[in-house]
Simulated assay, not measured.
Amino acid sequence: MLKNSSRLSKNSSRRIRSRAAAYLVAAAALSLALTGCGQDSTSPKEARGQADVKSTHAEAHLKAAGTANPVDCAKAKCIALTFDAGPGPHTPQLLDILKEKKVRATFFLLGKNHVDTHPDTVRGAAAEGHEIANHTWTHRRLDQLKPSEIRTELGRTQQAIKALTGHEPTLMRPPQGRTDGEVKDVTKELGLSQVLWSATAKDYATTDSAVIRKRILDQAGRDGIILLHDIYDGTVPAVPGIIDELKKRGYTFVTVPQLLAPGTAEPGTVYRP
């Protein structure tokens, strides 16, 4: 009986070690994905430290977007709220919330069935001072495409946004955070910087606004970049609670360019807290 118990104990230990190893591998894989598939990344703090001559370019960009930076994120406790894969039916409600809360966000927009379907929403977001950025045309993984296909995915959205707002985006977010050397080369060519994130609610997998809120609040940190999707039913209702609680914690909400200022995002570079 004791021998059998000992065997069971050893087998259980092996299973636990095996599961732990599997979790570590999964976590490492996720970390690799979020840092751009092995690509070097630059933090907001590092971007601010690289300012010097570039600061004039950053200030010019912020003024052109109507968001001249009154916040010094080297001193203030800044955090950037970003939304992917819109605009959609929920985006006008989100814009009303952001206006009421006096928060400006960064929107990484999809072209097909989004920018081309909700042109007034895109114009409205830009007019209200939000940063309008690129999330490709059809959300294909860029690291699986040829350079010409990457160029098309990004270029079509660049032109669609420019036609509505008068300005081409300077920021993009690769679908799933997947990037590589070829993506870097094409984004550099198109004048686009790559922006990843530090907090995500995985709101594509739940409609529970309370869960979305808690996940973001648990991951929030100084110089953080929050990733949400305004196309899912549970996300927009979670936003007021996220904003209110983070303001109570002393955070100042900024756009991604404001987070990097007086530095400026360099085309091709991956930015991640």
Rank of each mutant, 00 (worst) to 15 (best):
T106R: 02
S198H: 02
S198G: 13
K101L: 12
D223M: 07
I161T: 03
T152S: 15
L142F: 07
A163K: 12
G224A: 07
K202M: 14
R215F: 07
L196R: 00
L98V: 08
T121E: 06
L95K: 02
P92E: 06
L142W: 04
T179R: 00
T200C: 09
G124W: 09
P175L: 08
R213C: 10
G88S: 15
E131F: 02
F108D: 00
S198R: 00
D185C: 05
Q144D: 14
R215Y: 07
F107R: 01
T152L: 12
Q158A: 05
G111R: 00
A127E: 14
T165R: 00
D120T: 12
R104E: 13
L145I: 03
P87S: 04
L164M: 07
K188N: 13
L192M: 05
F107P: 07
H118L: 10
A201K: 01
R222E: 14
W197F: 13
M172L: 12
K101Y: 11
S193V: 02
T187K: 00
I226Q: 02
G155F: 08
R123E: 11
G129H: 05
R151V: 02
G124T: 13
L95E: 05
A125K: 01
W137F: 12
L217E: 11
V195D: 01
W197S: 05
D116F: 06
A125T: 03
D208W: 09
N134E: 11
H167M: 12
L95F: 10
D218I: 09
